[in-house]
Simulated assay, not measured.
Amino acid sequence: MRLFYNIAGVLAVILGVVGIFLPLLPTTPFLLLASACFARGSVRLHRWLLSHRVFGAYLRNFEEGRGIPLKAKIVATALLWLSLLGAMGRVDHLGLQALLLATGIGVSTYMWRYLPTLRLPRQEQPPHDA
């Protein structure tokens, strides 16, 4: 079973990285899935992902229940709706458009209502010279 989790985790990481460059493929859910798989399959791979220079802090904050930064929520919501509206404009099937709309509403509701917003500490302001 550990092998299955590790393979699924590696595939999720690959899809997450590809999602950085393809607007319709989400990055965050795949990285969260990879983290969950690695947590069950390999302590070493899980540690690697959580210490990754790009994804690590983001995943650690999520796993520890602190949430994601406000800027990330805004960017994710904007990209989600741009992608969904673009896809809905290209699809002529009303049922599929409704499914895309329901997906967008569901993801947005979860992100803004149930996913905590990470409060970053204010940086010290440099003294002003008078």
Score class of each variant (00 low, 15 high):
P69R: 11
T117H: 05
P121L: 04
L94N: 00
P126S: 12
G65M: 02
V13S: 04
I20C: 12
G106M: 06
P116F: 02
E124R: 14
N6E: 12
A72R: 01
L85D: 00
L33S: 10
R2F: 09
L24C: 05
K71Y: 09
A36P: 04
D129N: 11
F62I: 07
I7F: 11
A76G: 09
V18A: 14
G67E: 01
A76K: 00
G104L: 08
P23V: 02
D129R: 14
P126F: 11
G89C: 04
V18D: 04
F4N: 08
L24G: 15
L115Y: 06
A76T: 06
R60T: 02
L24P: 07
I68F: 07
L80N: 11
V91G: 03
Y110H: 12
G16N: 02
G65E: 02
R53M: 08
P126E: 15
R113G: 06
Q125I: 11
V10F: 12
I68C: 07
A39H: 12
V75W: 11
K71P: 02
L99R: 07
G65A: 04
I74E: 10
A76Y: 01
G65N: 05
V18I: 15
S83K: 02
L25P: 01
L49N: 04
A8Y: 10
W48S: 05
A78P: 03
L31R: 07
F30H: 13
A34R: 07
V91W: 09
G86N: 02
L85I: 14
V43E: 14
F38D: 00
F21A: 10
L82N: 07
G41H: 07
Q123P: 06
K73C: 06
V18Y: 04
H93D: 13
Q125C: 07
A8T: 05
W81E: 00
L45K: 03
R119T: 14
L24F: 13
G56T: 08
L99N: 02
R113L: 15
D92H: 12
H46P: 02
N61D: 14
A36H: 11
I20E: 06
T103H: 13
Y58R: 09
R60G: 01
F21N: 00
L82M: 13
L94T: 01
L82V: 11
R2E: 15
W112C: 10
A87P: 01
A102N: 08
I20V: 13
R122Y: 05
P127D: 14
G67K: 02
R47N: 14
R119L: 13
S108V: 08
S108C: 08
C37H: 03
G104R: 06
L25A: 03
A36T: 11
L33C: 11
E64S: 15
D129K: 12
W81L: 00
A72H: 03
I7R: 06
A36Y: 13
A87C: 08
K71T: 13
F30R: 03
V54R: 08
S42L: 11
L15A: 10
L100T: 09
